[in-house]
Design a binder for these strands. Sequence first.
DNA 1: GTTTTTGCACTGACCAGTCAGTTCAAGTAA
DNA 2: TTACTTGAACTGACTGGTCAGTGCAAAAAC
Lengths: 208, 208
Amino acid sequence: MESSTTPGGRTRREATRQKLYEAAVTLIAEQGFSATTVDEIAERAGVAKGTVYYNFASKSVLFEELLRHGVGLLTASLREAAERTAREGGSKVDALDAMVRAGLVFIDRYPSFTQLYVAELWRTNRAWQSTLMVVRQEAVAVVEGVLREGVENGEFSDEIDVPLTAAALVGMVLVAALDWQAFQPERSLDDVHAALSRLLQGRVSGHR
Amino acid sequence: MESSTTPGGRTRREATRQKLYEAAVTLIAEQGFSATTVDEIAERAGVAKGTVYYNFASKSVLFEELLRHGVGLLTASLREAAERTAREGGSKVDALDAMVRAGLVFIDRYPSFTQLYVAELWRTNRAWQSTLMVVRQEAVAVVEGVLREGVENGEFSDEIDVPLTAAALVGMVLVAALDWQAFQPERSLDDVHAALSRLLQGRVSGHR
DNA sequence: GTTTTTGCACTGACCAGTCAGTTCAAGTAA
DNA sequence: TTACTTGAACTGACTGGTCAGTGCAAAAAC
């Protein structure tokens, strides 16, 4: 039989899975994967434990699909920012700047996911290691693409190290944003964006 | 009775604790705190489980002391770099650059500790939350200090946001270095340092 | 009438922490 | 020198509890 759909157009299963993602992401961000129990996730999602296993083969599978889901949202948002800038005739620096902002918006909207992503990204010897590699490369590749185009059209020095610079930029935004969330949450996104723009464009050691 | 000393001058207990730190740091970096068992730590350290509890009140306490120990090494190294630059009459940009290098050297020598530090730093709701805050601030404060001095003597724009910029710089180095270790370990430290220097000094959008 | 969810009891593996007992180097005594 | 004592350091089997995952009958949703 065809899967039935709710008024919103999503299947019932999808709605349940969404609730489980949301419950799992905050719990795992706070406590880590191993310290989070399936019972907790089910309870927070307002669902029976059996439902978790009806929808996901195991706890790890739930987590892996959660990762893929979240990174999909992030890369889509980064790509959109880069393309919009290009469409509007902006330079590559403008594109990077727009991506920094898109990153901040994403982190602002999904702080737990970001936390969890950073915490698991450099782990080795874990079941979902391969998923993580794929998922990392997906996000960094978008930044690398813009850098590479900038080198080709002469806007960036051809001496820059594209993969390393991309990683450094991602790290800059990630860590600055997590610090913002954790230690000075009252500041506005524009404020944080301005500070990072300044750093990005080398206007730190400029003068007053 | 006086505690006996080995030929190296350290007490036997200290030597055991050191072995436990070393075993714990790699295991926790790979698997995370909760997924690492005390039995594993004891086995890797070549010691009985009881010895762990003879030396540390609990698994969490072992971890907290490990954190403090490692961050102590890092901040000492950062401070030393800043002071050496000052002594040699370097500018504040030189000091930042020296600190970037010191950070890279540290991460190169203690990659597991760095991994673990990043993974646990933004967790909330954990027993050692307060330890983490202290330990984070300790490291970031060194960078903030140099930035603040630079603003005071006019070398940096007084529009920069000191805490946020410090966090962003730390993040840049941390993430770039972890990526270096994980994905392109064949590259030399000088290479990585050069790429980050370029970014730090805004020589990215300069021309060929 | 089919799919999805519920509720709940159950199992087996795993694991933090405990504790009674062992080891051994340094100290004391004769 | 030799015999005995002391106490810090260490050992590893054991316990009590936790948790991922199962099984299933009945209910609800569609």
